[in-house]
Amino acid sequence: MNANAAGLFVGVDWGLTLAYLGAAIAVVLSGYGSARGVATAGQAAAGVVTEDPSKYGKTIILTALPGSQGIYGFVIGMLIFLKLQGKASIPISAGWSLLAAGIPIGIVGLLSALWQGRVAAAGIGIVAKRPEEASKGLVYAGMVETYAILSLVISFFLLNNVTL
């Protein structure tokens, strides 16, 4: 490493940096997943509404469902931020721990939102063909969410366990 490149890292607080990375992973990954999931469901919903605008109300509920992972990620990111607020420096070990705490909701939030988007899109198919059974589509989509919730719980406890 030459002198200039090394200069980039002068004065970096690695503990804080790692913790920020943890918050970023939680928010970015789950947010991306939710955006994709809502997009998948939203496209299906738009198709149904083209045919029958009166189904707007029913489709919007299913479309919003994959959005929750992004919220969970944001919650964890926000909690990490609140923990760091006003700290000029934290130990590197605490930084690693906070990074690790952001990972469960980041990754599971990403994947579950993607898949939930597909189930929600299929549920919108139920709204189109058998609107009276629409609530069952909602339950199917809700089942995918279980795993995002479990990882949210774990992320939360992991980050709660870090003392600064």
């Binding site: 919730i149 949210l152 719980v153």
Partner: peptide
Amino acid sequence: SYARLMALGLSGGVM
């Protein structure tokens, strides 16, 4: 599976 009750209350509360 009932952990979801806590998680939902928590995420809503933090938000």
